[in-house]
Write a protein that binds this DNA or RNA. Structure first.
Lengths: 167, 167
DNA sequence: CCTAGTTGATTGAGAGTTCAACAAGTACAC
DNA sequence: GTGTACTTGTTGAACTCTCAATCAACTAGG
């Protein structure tokens, strides 16, 4: 076992700043969604993933994969979302173990209602704070980190473009 | 109320990548600490903050401020840490409402034991993935985000430098 | 002094996440 | 076919975090 490669002063400074920034940002987004749309960020992302899927429907395992979520977590979450009437489960005909999760019209409406506030928060707290160069740099850095994590650089989050919106 | 400023395709792509990267990184760190040191990341940071304080002691409210944590959360956390024997509470003599949290020798030992694995994870998953330029860029970006959040750019995280370590 | 308002910290309930255990179904070799 | 191994999805318990309520102690103004 090799020696620990400790962080330099500068690295530590950056690491702490990074941690503070990302945690603060995450926190701000979560708070905004909880306050204005009564849903946790994780649930919002589930709704988004479903809204972008064909027929607004996905297998539970696919949904878990796309969201980088554990099956267990997703199962609990979908149970909640079903209670709220935003998602409905269907059995898979070809594989009797399988389950589909389908976004309901109510769920889509909830997503549409939540989106503007969420995007606004993302824009104000992140993009408005950075220069265009920094935005590009952040994109590169994020990709690099993703590579290091060995996770698929898959589709990962909300539909926030103007085009993605319903008419 | 003004129109929502939706994200461009490019912005959305970067946003998703950023979210995936930071969540994945956060997750990896949390898992490593939980697995190897049986503590959540938040608790690790509390121990770090205490270890860097004079007499390894801080007022609860100061600790909450430094960690950007709610008083409630900290109270619960310190209760757990006290159970584990890693932290001890003391009454404040001058302000009888106040409480001190003090890192015990056991707590310090636990921190020392946990640190190498944690730093290694941070280095491998973050710094090893970036060029020196990107590291600097990330520092700048993080500062900018922090400014936008309006939080103090205070000391925010683990003591990971070689100098910070006990002899 | 004494009330009103503020601050420091704790508590309990509710919600989300994790982990391990589990049931049920599928796949594949033999 | 039969048995073994793997996959899909759910469940329950334990844990952390949040939020609102609470309480004690301090502080300022009359």
């Amino acid at each position: 076992m090799s020696e620990t490669r400790w962080l330099s002063e500068r690295e530590q400074e950056i690491w702490r700043s990074f941690l503070s920034a990302t945690m603060g940002l995450t926190d701000a987004l979560a708070r905004q969604l909880q306050r204005d749309a009564a849903m946790p960020h994780a649930y919002y992302e589930i709704l988004v993933a479903l809204s972008e899927a064909p027929d607004r429907t996905l297998r539970m395992s696919e949904l878990a994969g796309v969201r980088n979520s554990s099956r267990s977590r997703l199962s609990h979450a979908v149970a909640r979302l079903e209670e709220a009437g935003w998602v409905r489960r269907r059995d898979c005909p070809t594989d009797k173990r399988g389950s589909f999760a389908m976004l309901t019209d109510d769920g889509y409406a909830a997503l549409e209602a939540a989106a503007p506030g969420h995007v606004t928060e993302v824009r104000e707290k992140l993009f408005d704070q950075l220069t265009p160069e920094q935005v590009e740099q952040l994109g590169e850095i994020s990709r690099a980190i993703q590579r290091g994590l060995g996770t698929a650089p898959a589709v990962t989050c909300p539909s926030l473009t103007a085009e993605g919106r319903a008419s």
